[in-house]
């Protein structure tokens, strides 16, 4: 079953130059798709289009058999409830003036009335926050702290907890490990893998790190200059039919 389908997506910031050029991809339920490319290849723009932060210039994003472009308010709300995100820089992604527990509750409070949680259980705010923190392997006292009291890796766990709190169908991970140190990077990748196992959601994992993508994702797409050059199953990474650019990437790692 397909969670989301991107058809011939186009986006340009400067006339005549497409940041995302005719990209088509689909993500199945419970699948994690990796999107690899250098900085400036358009992978983050693609993510922003998916998240509805940028308007698309052409093509469509299909969710629940309907295009987002002409979705009703209700359908759009349903889409937002099911597509969450984790960004590269956890410090920027948390409001420095809010306690961790308040940041964590943001999506839940927004969609409270429409949610039917299967894994988590809401009895009180306190208990819910503790449950979330526990799921991302953080001590539950952290709920009462402010972001600047946490390390980078801890903050990224918090943003992950916030993203999974409403049990979305898809999480867009935009370079979630790029600003962390090595040991935290490895730990975050492991956490993401185990969360996917328990919660069964899909990932779109965007990164310039082919090895990290390979570790987490079943399928990998390679992007360059706004275009998708190559899409393959993880196990076929060393196939001879790989695109030359993919081979170049592989040679690096």
């Amino acid at each position: 079953m397909t969670v989301i389908e991107i058809n011939n997506l186009k986006k340009s910031y400067h006339p005549g130059k497409l940041a995302v050029n005719d990209v088509s991809l689909s993500i199945a339920k419970g699948e994690s798709l990796g999107l690899v490319g250098e900085s400036g290849c358009g992978k983050s723009t693609l993510a922003r289009c998916l998240l509805g932060v940028e308007k698309v210039d052409g093509g469509s994003i299909i969710y629940n058999e309907r295009s987002l472009a002409n979705a009703s308010r209700k359908a759009l709300r349903d889409y937002r409830r099911n597509v969450q995100t984790v960004f590269q820089n956890p410090t920027a992604a948390l409001n420095p003036k809010l306690k961790i527990k308040d940041s964590l509750l943001d999506p839940f409070l927004q969609f409270q009335d429409e949610l039917q949680l299967e894994h988590f259980h809401f009895s009180s705010k306190q208990a819910f926050v503790e449950q979330l923190l526990e799921t991302v392997e953080l001590p539950k006292e952290l709920g009462d702290r402010y972001p600047h009291e946490l390390s980078g890796g801890q903050k990224q766990r918090v943003t992950i907890a916030r993203a999974i709190s409403i049990e979305p169908k898809l999480i867009v991970l935009d370079e979630p490990t790029a600003s962390l140190d090595v040991l935290s990077q490895g730990a975050i990748l492991e956490l993401l893998a185990s969360l996917q196992e328990t919660l069964g959601m899909s990932y779109l994992f965007i990164s310039h790190d082919l090895a990290a993508v390979h570790q987490l994702c079943q399928r990998i797409a390679v992007m360059k200059d706004g275009e998708i050059l190559d899409v393959f199953q993880r196990d076929n990474i060393y196939d001879n039919s790989r695109h030359d650019y993919t081979k170049e990437l592989i040679s690096i790692f």
């Binding site: 998240l51 509805g52 932060v53 759009l76 709300r77 937002r80 409830r81 597509v83 969450q84 995100t85 960004f87 820089n89 920027a92 992604a93 948390l94 409001n95 003036k97 809010l98 308040d102 940041s103 943001d106 999506p107 927004q110 969609f111 916030r162």
Partner: peptide, 23 residues
């Protein structure tokens, strides 16, 4: 980013003002 994320979550402009900007 945290405002972008609030927008992605569909928080209204008023809620963003009250919850995220006022502090």
């Amino acid at each position: 980013d945290y405002i972008t994320i609030a927008r992605i979550n569909g928080l209204s402009t008023f809620t963003i003002m009250r919850r995220h900007l006022l502090p």
